[in-house]
Design a binder for these strands. Structure first.
Lengths: 197, 197
DNA sequence: TATTCCGTTGACCACTTCGGTCAATGGTGA
DNA sequence: TCACCATTGACCGAAGTGGTCAACGGAATA
């Protein structure tokens, strides 16, 4: 099937399921926004439920594979590692703009444990890999709780990128990864001064 | 009107409008979850729109008034000030559990400028008051960008409380403010070491 | 006791929207 | 010419919508 049409269907579905609960999400809206006919949607998916389940699988696999593929495993600095992950996520969101809010809805309907299991099923050891493989924890000061420090780094980068993406939604420009990286670094330098030797 | 019933109506409405767009929010669901009859809801509110507008006003005024009332204006440490604000918000959320997600929906449908204007109309100078009135910025190291530092402090406290509230939703226990305050401090001490003289 | 009052009920209305179906269409390659 | 298949959109019965209103019941007043 035509890949551009495929993307339209995916984005329209992500949008509808992000804005409405499964029950209230309307297949009529999806086909209208995707620019296809009702019959075609039901040609590819046998029911609304099947479309929804397929979407969930698609989103998780896409995000996990992109991260695993594009991450630089030689980077030993946890600051840079976390930054990389968020930048990769932003690239995916640029292609599928409604993926972020759709994921949030999925997160809310599952418990933390279910979520972890789901991800571990797709890619065993995913979390421990991305946040610790080849990372040099010796860079932290001895008296710093590395676990808490990592949380602060993560929270800072996530909130910063959230604020950026909120602004991005309104304009129609492309994401300026260089500018983001530069401004993020200004925050990270401040944190590095405290956490690293 | 009975205040306990009033709270039930408010919480049921917050819940419904948080989970669905205005158009798809169902007054039938609201009366069912509030445990009242359809007629009674339309006795107090002439239409779904009026209920929605009243709710928005209620939420903003409640949050603003609670913060202005309970804040300790003698506190000169911005860390403590931000912590206070988040703790006050958590108290309100404990009473109206769906207020947080309802507010998020409102935030998304308005631009940042509209939002600020709305709040300034209810309480002129609100933002500049709560984040700077009586605050001692001299505590920051000279070479620290106070504006960025405040953002990091805010993000850390907000993300920490978000994570706590996510866990809180699942259990039915009361919020343990002392435990929160203690664990928050562990994060804040790490930041204070860098940012303050 | 009789009467008024009012908070409250829920069956009911006309109307919209729902998920899903299917006969028909049109283009393509054999 | 025919077989094939992606694609269309009118159509279905069912479910749900916002809002109305005659009637109820218990308390207060006369």
């Amino acid at each position: 099937m035509d890949s551009e049409k495929r993307k339209r269907i995916i984005n329209a579905s992500l949008d509808e399921f992000a804005k409405n609960s499964f029950k209230k999400a309307s297949t009529n809206n999806i086909v209208k926004n995707a620019g296809i006919s009702k019959g075609l949607l039901y040609h590819y998916f046998s029911s609304k439920k099947e479309l929804y389940e397929w979407l969930k699988k698609f989103v998780f696999e896409l995000m996990i594979n992109e991260i695993l593929e594009k991450i630089d495993w030689n980077e030993a600095d946890i600051f840079e590692r976390i930054k990389q992950i968020v930048l990769i996520k932003m690239q995916v969101i640029e292609e599928y703009p409604n993926l972020a809010s759709f994921s949030k809805v999925i997160y809310e309907e599952k418990s933390y444990e279910e979520m972890k299991e789901l991800i571990e099923n797709i890619s065993p050891g995913f979390y421990s890999q991305i946040y610790s493989r080849n990372i040099d924890f010796g860079l932290f000061k001895e008296d710093i709780d590395a676990h808490k420090a990592i949380k602060i780094i993560q929270w800072t980068i996530e909130k910063y990128s959230e604020e950026y993406l909120n602004g991005f939604k309104l304009t129609n420009e492309n994401i300026d990864y260089e500018a983001i990286s530069k401004e993020m670094d200004e925050y990270l330098i401040m944190l590095k001064m405290t956490f690293y030797k």
